[in-house]
Design a protein around this nucleic acid. Structure first.
Lengths: 191, 191
DNA sequence: TCGGGTTGTCTACGGTCGTAGACTTGGTGG
DNA sequence: CCACCAAGTCTACGACCGTAGACAACCCGA
């Protein structure tokens, strides 16, 4: 991330955005400073304000970027027979992977405050819960979809935010083995 | 909260603890300052350091206080033969009640700093995870216990904190029906 | 080649944070 | 009654925060 980069406004702006995304996901909005974000992009803190106006606007662009990305929660993925295994694998491998598709979720978790809960609820329902619900067959689809998200959120919370050692140090294969039947039970046609 | 209190070390210490608990639950460890906490207790900021040593130790005592209160995961519940059904019922009922055992969860969720997460991790592992692990038969007991806690936490997060409508407005019986087999799968002897 | 605008840095300001030591005030036991 | 220790306040330090304006370096087109 610190490779020498020639003067390139677009590349610098993208580097700041990427560093901010990593930082917000790791420590929350208040947990990371603009100097640290800038350092991760190989520039000084003032570049953040020059390109994004303020730290708050930077957060807005990070969220906008995440929301614009494709999600695994497409109908064809959800309806695939191995979706339970795929989401379990994705969830377990988040830490090792350099790219983190669930950054948005982590940022919401770690930056959540009283007034942010409503925003988070709206975005979760629009971008995650509705897609999942529409692709589930059987009864109680909204509730089952919500519990799937709850399991994902709880696992992330305990493993990445709290750092519960039984999850942080566990063999990924074991975690997959335990998570997959949970998802399968929720995703399979109910009743 | 600001009633005049005569010089009383125990009462002042309890007032600081209560104010800190409210503040941490509302804004997280980093979101509330010692001056604000002290003001909520009717004293000055230095009282925090005099009675608790540091803000970090204050958080430790707040969490310790919460951990000592009645909770879903008591030993007698864990050792009951129908624990999966009971924990599903208790989880749904307690979440619906909207009471203050949620404080501890809110604090952990909204405190993203490293030292706060470390304290929360230590308390969870000492009080919840260890009891649960010791009561589980079969392989992967620590991992299964941790995922049980993750499901509990995720459910509370989505239903109570985020307020996901599919969970907040759901019929409690339906939620119980969906949660119980998840817990049963994790709690029953594995392999 | 050589300005000129873009790109990035340097220094600094006002504010808030957690914390510390010296000080003042109050309640109480002899 | 009054001295004394506990209870609480005052002032301040050093560090970090987001932000700002002035300044230097670089690249490109003329």
């Amino acid at each position: 991330m610190a490779e020498t980069r020639r003067r390139d406004a677009a590349a610098t702006k993208a580097a700041i955005l990427a560093s901010a995304r990593r930082g917000f996901a790791r420590s929350g909005y208040d947990g990371v400073g603009v100097r640290e974000i800038a350092e991760g992009a190989g520039v000084t803190a003032m570049m953040v304000n020059r390109y994004f106006g303020s730290k708050e606007q930077l957060l807005g662009e990070v969220i906008a970027q995440i929301m614009a990305e494709p999600t695994i929660l497409t109908r064809e993925n959800i309806e695939a027979p191995d979706f339970a295994a795929r989401i379990a694998t994705l969830l377990v491998d988040i830490t090792a992977a350099g790219d983190t598709p669930l950054d948005g979720f982590l940022i919401m978790l770690r930056s959540s405050s009283e007034e942010a809960a409503a925003i988070a609820r709206g975005q979760i329902e629009a971008h995650y819960h509705r897609r999942l619900t529409n692709s589930l067959a059987g009864d109680l689809a909204p509730q089952r979809a919500a519990i799937v998200l709850a399991v994902v959120a709880g696992f992330q919370l305990m493993r990445q935010v709290i750092g519960l050692s039984a999850l942080a140090d566990a063999d990924p294969d074991d975690l997959r083995t335990l998570l997959e039947p949970l998802f399968r039970q929720l995703l399979d046609r109910h009743r």
